[in-house]
Design a protein around this nucleic acid. Structure first.
Lengths: 151, 151
DNA sequence: TCCTTTGTTTTGACACAGTCAAAACAAGCG
DNA sequence: CGCTTGTTTTGACTGTGTCAAAACAAAGGA
């Protein structure tokens, strides 16, 4: 019986022309469970089921998945690279300035404006990446608590 | 007589409540000359006039300038942090996917759409950062040359 | 002008994220 | 089953940046 927890990682890998290995399946499962994870978090999650997995193997897999278009890498300023399986829809992200939490943001109103800079300085434009910055609800709650607790 | 090469770095520093030192003035001059420079490039430039300057001093100054609002730090994915003196107008950037060159892009058509994500997942939104990716004219030229030279 | 205070710079060790390369290993195919 | 080729392991290494203590210098007052 096939694991339904992951969106049939094996099939995804085969379609992308990548060999199906335990490490790769486990990394995909980890990303399905915890989107916007960094290599370290993935290593930790993978080690839970495959304790002998090396850090390097996870880095390899994450690179391979990104190169094959099965995963997308984002790199908000001040954070290590994060990976997610949601690909192909060029959605955006909102990042917490305090704790670094990341959430998805669907593309903005018709998204045309974001793809059309006023001048391109001679560049051939390939894509536009939008990152929103703010404070997540958890951190907001903490701030309020602090204010309330202050004398 | 006052150096007119830099936009009176000393005055900027004093207004920001920072002491005026050779290192700081030299870093500001470097950034005025070469916007979107990383720490390494700034170190190299500063060493040209102040050969005894330490790498750490440049990092300190760059951090101080950014903290004081005299410089802005950007960090395109896959590159070290870059600094520029153009602050306060929240302009955007276009980055070359091949060579990493960076150019300024003034804020997009009315900029309202980019500041209004469809859902904020409970975040308090502070700002929106847009990064355009493409190929700069230099790299474009190289590609054409390669194609022409190919057969 | 010289002294004092406080902020800056130097020096050198260190941390983190990630890459490189070679040897051991295993998936997929005939 | 065994080959071939791609994957994983191991361990050293790089680049970017931070930390901390001692040496030093800018600003302001005596």
């Amino acid at each position: 019986m096939i694991e339904t927890t992951t969106p049939d990682a094996a099939a995804l890998l085969r379609e992308a022309g990548l060999r199906v290995t335990d490490t790769r399946v486990a990394v995909i499962a980890a990303l399905a469970d915890m989107p916007h994870s960094g290599a370290d978090a993935v290593v930790a999650r993978v080690e839970a089921t495959l304790p002998t997995t090396s850090r390097q193997a996870v880095y390899n897999v994450l690179n391979d998945l990104a190169a094959a278009g099965l995963a997308r890498r984002i790199e908000p300023a001040g954070q290590p690279g994060l990976y997610e399986l949601r690909v192909g829809d060029n959605h955006h992200h909102i990042v917490c300035q305090r704790c670094g939490a990341v959430a998805d943001v669907d593309c903005v109103t018709g998204h045309a404006p974001c793809l059309t800079p006023s001048q391109t300085s001679g560049f051939d434009l390939a894509e536009a990446e939008v990152t929103f910055w703010g404070i997540c609800s958890d951190c907001k709650a903490l701030t309020v608590d602090a204010v309330v607790a202050a004398p």
